[in-house]
Simulated assay, not measured.
Amino acid sequence: MRVAGEAHQHVGRPGPKLRADARRNVERLVAAARAALDEVGLGVTTRDVARRAGVGLGTVYRRVPSLDALLAAILVDTVDAMTQRAVQARGADDAWAGFAAFAEDFVQLRASSCGLHAALGAEAGPQLEPRLSRLRDAVRDLVEHAQAAGAIRADLDWTDVPFVLATAVPTDRTLGMPARPDQWRRNLAVVLDGLRAHRPG
């Protein structure tokens, strides 16, 4: 689901075409920033990105005019990919299968990225809000299409669905017990069972 699009626009500075080694540094910085955002969250630092990329701080400062802008662009890329996934799911021959596949992508991505999970659970900034608006439209279309097909419970408002899906993302521990590695998938199975329109027989 991840795409490179906007993130690479925030690495590098105007000037001559980058040399091969500089291009490799750019790729490493974007990959490192993405991994740090997933594992650490929105509090990731420039030093952490440099360490993960295997470059010095000077290289980061030369190639990344703004770490905040780069992290925001990575989130934009991810939300755009999620929107495209919702659009593709809407076109599936089987309405329930399409919705369930999107739900799995949505929950897995939130469960695997601290930064994305935090960003989607907070008030969006000016860069992310237009992209989230498109994602909301796509999810609404997907849910209402599945409801019209009799696949999702008709008594639900479409806005219930993103909140319910978000509950499938587990905390690290509860009642002193650690979450299983596949806990999000187990939670999602229960959530999907509750969303699905069950017909008698």
Rank of each mutant, 00 (worst) to 15 (best):
R24V: 14
N25P: 03
R28N: 13
R28I: 02
V30S: 06
A31F: 04
A32G: 08
R34C: 04
R34I: 01
A35M: 13
A36C: 14
D38K: 00
V40W: 04
V40S: 07
L42V: 01
G43W: 01
G43I: 06
V44D: 04
T45N: 11
T46H: 10
R47N: 14
D48I: 00
D48K: 11
A50G: 08
R51K: 12
R51I: 07
V55T: 11
V55H: 11
L57C: 05
Y61F: 06
R62F: 05
R62W: 03
R63D: 15
V64S: 04
V64F: 03
P65T: 04
L67Q: 09
L71M: 13
L71P: 02
A72N: 13
I74L: 15
I74M: 09
I74N: 08
L75M: 10
V76L: 13
D77Y: 00
M82E: 15
Q84C: 13
R85D: 15
A86C: 10
V87W: 03
A89T: 05
G91I: 01
D94H: 02
A95M: 08
F99V: 01
F99S: 00
F99C: 01
A100H: 03
F102Q: 06
E104A: 15
D105W: 05
D105F: 07
D105V: 13
F106G: 02
V107K: 07
R110H: 07
S112T: 11
S112I: 00
G115D: 10
A119H: 03
L120D: 01
A122T: 08
A124I: 00
G125Q: 04
G125A: 09
G125D: 15
P126A: 14
L128A: 08
L128H: 02
L128R: 03
R131G: 09
R131C: 13
S133E: 15
R134V: 11
L135V: 00
D137T: 06
E144Q: 12
H145Y: 03
Q147C: 04
A148F: 00
A149F: 01
G150M: 07
G150D: 12
I152L: 14
I152R: 02
A154R: 14
D155N: 13
